[in-house]
């Protein structure tokens, strides 16, 4: 069993109203240093019976096919 984490971020230049709202809330709470907040996704996968050499390639395929939308998102695979 291998565990792989994927981080999905909105691309630079894509407006993130959710991050903006959280940033404003942080500033309202006194965290003036919160200059920018961007909110993405964290996905944790457990892969059963996967060939360790192919884990990265397979997870990359999963991201390209389903988990991320290349029009608006970048992904990063951690571990695996």
């Amino acid at each position: 069993m291998s565990k792989v984490q994927v981080i999905i971020r909105l691309k630079n230049g894509v407006l993130d109203p959710q991050g903006k709202t959280a940033q404003h809330a942080l500033q309202a709470l006194g965290f003036q240093e919160a200059a920018q907040v961007r909110i993405g996704k964290f996905i944790e996968l457990e892969l059963d019976g996967a060939n360790p050499d192919q884990v990265n390639t397979r997870v990359r395929e999963m991201c390209e096919k389903l988990l991320a939308n290349p029009v608006i998102e970048d992904f990063e695979i951690l571990g695996g």
Binding site: L15, D16, P17, Q18, K20, T21, N69, V71, I72
Partner: peptide, 15 residues
């Protein structure tokens, strides 16, 4: 999402 049309729909600007 099917890429039959270009682009994507994001969260509304006023959230």
């Amino acid at each position: 999402e099917m890429q039959l049309l270009p682009g994507a729909l994001l969260t509304n600007k006023p959230i």
